[in-house]
Design a binder for these strands. Structure first.
Lengths: 343, 343
DNA sequence: GCGTACGTTTGCAACGCTGCAAAGCGTGAA
DNA sequence: TTCACGCTTTGCAGCGTTGCAAACGTACGC
């Protein structure tokens, strides 16, 4: 048996409209009436029908988060934060993963966005922002990718600067032959390019050559890719002093492989990652990394999304913003001291 | 401007009903009519209004997944699989996290479940199944917890057996002083108890005493808890041969701490985890662990949920099922060989 | 030529809720 | 006593879609 406001109203001896008023905390309701309706609501276990409410109000209070994959630590941490921060605004989050597939990405931004969510937070991967803007049916904020040429709001850290800082840190240690792992020429989101650029700038500023043969492309950003890439790197250039990986996962894969091949980290080879995922704080050695302020990313993105949603009815669409969020370089064991160890 | 079936119908010169028929692939539509309506749909970029559809049909094609936390690797892997498997059925997934908080858990199972999702997959934590069944407003399937006394469907591995196998593996190595990390006396979901029980059974079968002082309670199942617990364990019993952790995260935290304290793994102390998260495949040393068949867990749970949803209108509610899914013991470096290493 | 049957199209109503605007009611001022 | 005002309650309609059942048209068999 489905309980609607009708049943509640009947039970409390009021009109449906009054029942609705109570359910929505409308101020002008007599205390006694309110009490009676409340009681009816509880006795009948009334739960508002979201679909009807949405149909009427035109809002869902649901946003969707579209990421390449949920299970990768970076995105799962981001998702967790998003759910938490969204809750502060009374939103719930619909999470979707695209598996890095362009078609799925198109479908997700178009599909769920349709009208069942109020807005979309999207980490694009295979589809360019220019195309996304065509598809978007509602407010969309992009997370962490290249400059979008002002077609859509987007929130990210300054990837070039972060990458430059990471590389400069290695140079400051005295490393001269520095490999980079994580170029992704096949992708449209452009993040990897920015990181290569920062790496290049740092080398240049130190008067060192930018060797493209030390920039290893990867298919995805996971441990196995890092493991494979570092193996290739060692073949290309056995005398490598340090490796800068464009994700912590890559770095952890590389770390593992370096140790397997008998290279001590950081004595023989230093390793820097990117993302500051939790694993890197507990690996052996712990991982030096670029830490984007994830909570800030989410907060800024949701602020922006809220503004877009609120402004939807407004007159002129505001110009898209490129929002930059701070990051830090966290120096840990993989580029500094080594712990003492038996054996 | 909102495009509805009305606009499409107008444009194509047909009735709203016919437009709806085309949008829903109703078979009895003349090819020419279909073509015209299709064209209108595309030109106007018509997207069906989910709310209205749901209101009319009574179905959302959305299920919710309620987990203690998204960012922990086990749950994020589970979530990723769920999204993927659910997609095969045409469902999308609404993910919520409770932060292990009892109230939030209650709200989640009650709230989203209300009528906005067709069913709920829930990993309970702080709330007992008995209470959950009271709250549930629709089909609910529980994941991975104690026997539910038949109040709700639930899917899990055989925790007692898995835990016994892990402990027996250590015993077979010759370990005699074996600690256990991960008791959670404050929780209601009972998983930890089952694992303690399996551990106890194994020790007993080997004629060894079950020492409660070697069973370390933890607040949550993350790396820091594992790190702290193993520190306490070493204080209680410095001569420990092996540690069985009730999650891989605990194990990774323990691993790290053991190494820091100068204990080699596995030569000095062996470590076994539970969950088979990806990190354990890339740690140093790699982690021996109990691997639940996660895909199977999700598949079975969704099958069951689908059956519940389908059977909702049926007459007698079917009796709840306890579904057991297979697991394996994956033996890796943390209980066997050590890699050679320089230095 | 007519009735039947089937393929195709349609109008009506309702899913449960809330915006709107007006009606009902009680109180204090004139 | 009457009027105006504000608090409270109400009815109506419609959000966009689809189930239902009837209407329409055409082709076929008798």
């Amino acid at each position: 048996m489905v309980v609607g406001l009708r049943e509640v109203a009947e039970r409390a001896g009021v009109s449906v409209r009054t029942a609705s008023n109570v359910a929505n905390d409308f101020p002008h309701v007599a205390p006694e009436t309110r009490r009676r309706v409340q009681a009816a609501i509880e006795e009948l276990k009334y739960r508002p029908n979201t679909a009807a409410r949405q149909l009427r109000r035109g809002r869902t209070e649901v946003i969707s988060l579209v990421v390449p994959e949920i299970s990768s630590p970076y995105f799962s941490e981001l998702a967790a934060i998003t759910v938490r921060v969204a809750a502060e605004r009374g939103w719930t989050v619909h999470i979707d993963q695209t598996d890095g597939d362009a078609d799925q990405e198109r479908r997700m931004i178009l599909g769920p966005a349709g009208r069942s969510v109020d807005g979309v937070l999207c980490s694009p991967w295979a589809v360019s922002p220019a195309e996304l803007v065509e598809l978007a049916a509602g407010p969309v904020v992009l997370l962490g990718e290249r400059e979008t040429d002002g077609v859509l709001d987007h929130v990210a850290i300054d990837n070039v600067r972060a990458s430059r800082e990471a590389t400069l840190h290695l140079l400051a240690r005295g490393d001269r032959v520095i490999g980079a792992i994580g170029a992704q020429p096949h992708l449209q989101n452009g993040t990897a390019e920015l990181r290569v650029e920062g790496y290049r700038q740092a080398l240049e500023s130190a008067g060192l050559p930018f060797r493209t043969d030390l920039v290893m492309p990867v298919r995805s950003l996971h441990r196995p890719d890092g493991a494979a890439a570092v193996t290739r790197l060692l073949e290309v250039e056995p005398r490598v002093d340090a490796v800068f990986c464009f994700s912590d996962e890559l770095a952890l894969g590389a770390l593992r492989t370096l140790l397997e091949q008998g290279r001590r980290v950081p004595q023989d080879v230093a390793v820097v990652g990117f993302d500051d995922i939790e694993d890197g704080r507990y690996s052996t050695p712990t991982l030096t990394t670029i830490a984007p302020d994830k909570t800030q990313i989410v907060r800024v993105a949701l602020d922006r999304l809220a503004a877009r949603i609120a402004g939807q009815t407004g007159s002129g669409a505001e110009a898209p913003l490129d929002l930059v969020v701070p990051h830090r370089l966290l120096i840990r064991e993989s580029t500094t001291s080594v712990r003492t160890r038996k054996g």
